[in-house]
Computed example of a mutant assay.
Amino acid sequence: MMLTNLADSAVLAPAALAIAIWLAASRAWRLATLWCALFGVGVVMVAATKIAFIGWGLGVRSLNFTGISGHTMLATAVYPTILWLVLQRYRPAVRNTGAALGLLFGVIVGLSRLVLHAHSPSEVVAGCLWGAVVSIGFIALSQLRSLPALHPLMFVCSLLLIGAVLYGTRAPSQRLIIRTALALSGHHEPYIRVTWRMRGTGRNQPAHAAPVCRDGLSGT
């Protein structure tokens, strides 16, 4: 739970916003725009896969895939980017090592989701890959431009403040996704993993299944 809480959207969404604000404050407008675009695409893709499953039951039964792991995507997108920016004054090998450690931490977060039975392996792998696309894409494109004059200490302090204030908070993202999926699909009940998998195997299933939603630990 400690690792999972470090990757909750209640913590990492504000951290991602802080990255954009610091880049903009450093007059790195293009980098700030680039980060917002890449991060936004990453979040939209996670939400889209979850909405598709919850609203219409779209997934891959053979892989037990019902949507990209949001915690894992956020961790592998945000933490490598933070470390790379904090270490920008060091030589490239050091910066790249920091980014690699950030990716490794994202993978560890993904393992925590498996331990908590919040996601299947395929969903965690998808989260790792999609988050890596965001962070590595930003890092690669950033090297084509001059680096911003960020103040590493103040940047880190602002992120630590965000973590200290919001750690342990559960964002209502899953409830919002469920409501959006039901509104778009016109269905009264969301698809859930258990009955969805039973339908794929041809086994009998109850006529009505109440939705299962635990913020931060949803099986979707």
Score class of each variant (00 low, 15 high):
Leu63Arg: 13
His151Asp: 05
Arg199Thr: 00
Phe39Thr: 08
Ala7Asn: 09
Val11Cys: 15
Arg197Ala: 13
Trp130Met: 14
Ala164Gln: 11
Val156Gly: 04
Pro211Arg: 01
Arg197Val: 08
Thr201Tyr: 11
Ile139Met: 08
Ala28Thr: 00
Pro14Lys: 06
Gly219Pro: 03
Phe138Glu: 11
Ala181Val: 05
Ile19Lys: 10
Val86Pro: 02
Leu74Ile: 07
Phe105Ala: 03
Leu85Gln: 04
Ala24Val: 11
Leu166Phe: 15
Val194Asn: 03
Tyr79Cys: 03
Val156Cys: 14
Val212Tyr: 03
Ser142Pro: 10
Ala32Met: 15
Leu23Lys: 12
Ala140Arg: 11
Val194Met: 04
Tyr191Leu: 05
Ala7Pro: 11
His119Glu: 09
Arg113Ile: 06
Met1Asp: 02
Val43Asp: 00
Asp8Tyr: 12
Ala20Ile: 11
Gly168Thr: 12
Leu58Thr: 05
Thr49Gln: 13
Pro148Asp: 01
Met1Leu: 07
Gln143Asp: 03
Leu182Val: 08
Ile51Met: 00
Ser218His: 01
Ala75Met: 07
Ile21Leu: 02
Leu150Val: 11
Val124Gly: 09
Gly131Met: 00
Arg30His: 00
Arg175Met: 06
Pro92Met: 08
Arg27Thr: 00
Arg89Gln: 15
Gln205Ile: 05
Val11Gly: 15
Gly127Glu: 04
Ile19Ala: 14
Tyr167Gln: 04
Val115Glu: 10
Ile19Arg: 11
Gly40Glu: 10
Arg95Ser: 10
Leu161Asn: 13
His187Lys: 00
Ala13Leu: 15
His117Asn: 10
Thr180His: 15
Thr66Arg: 12
Ile136Arg: 04
Gly42Gln: 05
Ala47Ser: 08
Ala75Asp: 01
Arg91Pro: 06
Phe39Asn: 02
Phe105Cys: 07
Val133Met: 14
Val44Gln: 14
Val60Cys: 03
Gly98Ser: 01
Trp196Met: 00
Trp196Val: 03
Ile82Arg: 12
Ile139Phe: 08
Leu34Thr: 04
Ala99Glu: 06
Trp35Leu: 15
Gln143Phe: 11
Pro172Trp: 12
Ser112Ile: 04
Ala99Val: 08
Leu176Cys: 10
Asp215His: 09
Leu104Ile: 13
Gly216Tyr: 08
Thr201Ser: 10
Cys36Thr: 00
Arg175Val: 13
Met73Thr: 12
Leu85Val: 09
Leu63Gln: 05
Thr201Val: 11
Leu161Glu: 03
Gly131Cys: 01
Arg199Met: 03
Gly70Ala: 00
Gly106Ile: 04
Asn5Leu: 11
Ala32Ile: 10
Ala15Phe: 09
Thr33Cys: 15
Ile82Val: 14
Val133Gly: 06
Phe105Glu: 12
His208Ile: 10
Gly137Pro: 03
Gly219Gln: 07
Ala48Tyr: 13
Ala93Asn: 04
Gly42Ile: 08
His117Cys: 05
Ser62Val: 10
Val86Gly: 02
Leu150Pro: 01
Ser69Phe: 09
Phe138Val: 03
Gly200Glu: 09
Leu160Gln: 12
Ser9Thr: 13
Val41Asn: 08
Ser218Lys: 00
Ser112Val: 03
Leu6Tyr: 15
Gly102Pro: 09
Ala48Lys: 12
